[in-house]
Design a protein around this nucleic acid. Structure first.
Lengths: 131, 131
DNA sequence: GACAAAATGATAATGGATTATCATTATTAA
DNA sequence: TTAATAATGATAATCCATTATCATTTTGTC
């Protein structure tokens, strides 16, 4: 039977509260503020369970192990900071890209990833930013 | 000293001839037609060397180990077939996506990946295709 | 052709992420 | 409360891609 433990509550809360895809390690760090002794194995187990239940989804960014965000959000994409490594959620999507596919190909979906520096990293080491 | 071996010639030829990003295993299979005894270690070694020389670049698709294509192509993106797993090159790019980044973020690049079925896989199991 | 050195191929070793194990702890229903 | 058992945490084990090792082969030079 599914039991409601402090650990699971903490992990679920973290994914509710932090609106960007989190790696298992990031989930661990954040959830340990709520449940100090929390172990990484429990994080993996809980994330896996949440994905199976449809409560969370894995977000795959090129060259990285999966991160996790809560499911149910509307179609969106991500920003990957090359300085701190964090992933962020972007709002909206510029459209359908099926027209890019060669003749005879059947497009079912797409992924867009922006790379650059997040606001925090731009501050830390200033330069041109999105106005 | 850099020596020109049959193995390297074969691996380089494969990347010239096949215009889509290839995994080390795909490179191995293709190059073994030219050099039967070719080993996977040589493929990894040669690909690594080609990237260092700037002759090839790694292509990272979400959730996959790097594939390799020859460098020098103009800005483009990729299509990933969910049926056969092959990656394909797409022509052109619909534009700049920096406007999608939140205020304060500095965008330096972007990646687009289309998912669906390649022409060959559509044929094998027909359905709607790009007209 | 002979030699020195780079390259190869087979495979063991490595590294990082994820999963399994298992003794201990915590939750839930009675 | 208690009993039954699911969940946890520490860590060993696993998995897979990639790299290192090393005896053998091949290349380029004389």
């Amino acid at each position: 039977m599914e039991r409601s433990t402090r650990q699971r509550q903490a992990i679920r809360a973290v994914l509710e509260e932090i609106d960007r895809p989190l790696s298992p390690q990031e989930v661990l760090s954040a959830a340990q503020h709520k449940v100090p002794g929390l172990g990484i194995a429990t994080v993996y187990r809980t994330l896996k369970g949440m994905v199976e239940e449809g409560m969370a989804v894995a977000v795959e960014l090129p060259g990285n192990p999966p991160r996790y965000e809560r499911s149910g959000k509307k179609h969106h994409h991500h920003f990957h900071c090359i300085a701190c490594g964090k992933a962020f959620e972007l709002e909206g999507c510029p459209g359908d890209f099926a027209f890019m596919a060669p003749r005879g190909f059947q497009t079912q979906g797409h992924e867009i990833v922006l790379y650059g520096r997040c606001a925090e990293c731009c501050q830390r080491n200033p330069g041109a930013t999105t106005p």
